[in-house]
Computed example of a mutant assay.
Amino acid sequence: MAKFWRILGCVVAAVVAFAGVLALRSGDSGPDVKGFRHSAAQPEFCKEAQPLDLSRSAELSPHRRAHVIEDLRELAPADIAGDFDRLVSWYEHPSEEERDRSRRASVRVGEFIERSCDGINLGGIRT
């Protein structure tokens, strides 16, 4: 009987994870990347994001990375700003209870940056 519950738990977890991926990938949720790519803020945003590129990130200290994220937050559209805020907050005050939410925000921010800026690869994010 315990094996049944473990299997059921795994199935439920897989369904929830799949639904989460679909929600993140659907056009109805998340920031309007296409609209942002045609905005006046996009060129400056992408210029500011360059230090985060995988080819340059080894030179980036955690302190400097936090400042880059803060600067990008000021240029980002409102519909992704909350994720930038969560990430900045994590850099300032990392806590175990916020680790998962901060990690999810980091992925959403990374996806937004990569989709908005041609030629930027953050490593492990490629969309």
Score class of each variant (00 low, 15 high):
Glu98Asp: 09
Asp85Ala: 05
Val88Met: 01
Leu75Arg: 15
Arg65Gly: 07
Pro94Tyr: 14
Gly110His: 08
Glu97Tyr: 07
Ile80Cys: 03
Arg104Pro: 01
Glu59Ile: 08
Ser95Gln: 12
Ala105Val: 01
Pro62Asp: 15
Asp71Val: 04
Leu75Gln: 14
Val109Thr: 11
His67Asp: 13
Ala66Gln: 10
Phe84Gln: 01
Ala66Gly: 10
Ser61Leu: 10
Arg101Tyr: 01
Glu97Gln: 12
Asp71Trp: 09
Ser102Met: 03
Glu92Arg: 14
Val109Lys: 07
His67Ile: 07
Glu74Ser: 13
Glu111Lys: 13
Ala66Ser: 12
Leu72Asp: 06
Ser61Asn: 08
Tyr91Phe: 12
Leu60Met: 11
Glu92Trp: 12
Glu98Ala: 14
Asp79Leu: 07
Glu92Val: 00
Asp71Phe: 05
Ala81Trp: 00
Arg108Met: 04
Glu92Ser: 12
Ser106Ile: 00
Val68Trp: 09
Leu75Glu: 11
Ala78Val: 10
Asp100Ile: 15
Leu75Tyr: 09
Arg73Asp: 02
Ala81Ile: 03
Ser61Trp: 13
Phe84Val: 02
Glu70Ile: 01
Glu111Tyr: 07
Glu74Gln: 13
Asp79Glu: 12
Asp83Cys: 08
Ser106Lys: 05
Leu60Ser: 07
Pro94Arg: 13
Ile80His: 01
Asp85Met: 04
Ser95Gly: 10
Asp71Tyr: 06
Leu72His: 03
Ile69Ala: 08
Pro62Cys: 11
Ala76Asn: 08
Val109Trp: 04
Val88Asp: 02
Pro77Gly: 14
Glu96His: 02
Arg64Glu: 14
Ala81Thr: 05
Pro94Asp: 10
Val107Glu: 05
Leu60Val: 06
Gly110Arg: 03
Asp83Asn: 11
Val107Tyr: 01
Arg73Glu: 11
Glu97Val: 14
Ile69Arg: 02
Asp79Lys: 11
Trp90Thr: 02
Pro77Arg: 14
Val88Ala: 06
Ala105Gly: 06
Ser89Ala: 14
Glu70Lys: 04
Ser89Arg: 10
Arg104Tyr: 04
Trp90Arg: 01
Asp100Gly: 03
Ser95Asp: 04
Arg86Leu: 05
Glu111Thr: 13
Leu72Arg: 09
Arg86Ser: 01
Asp100Pro: 00
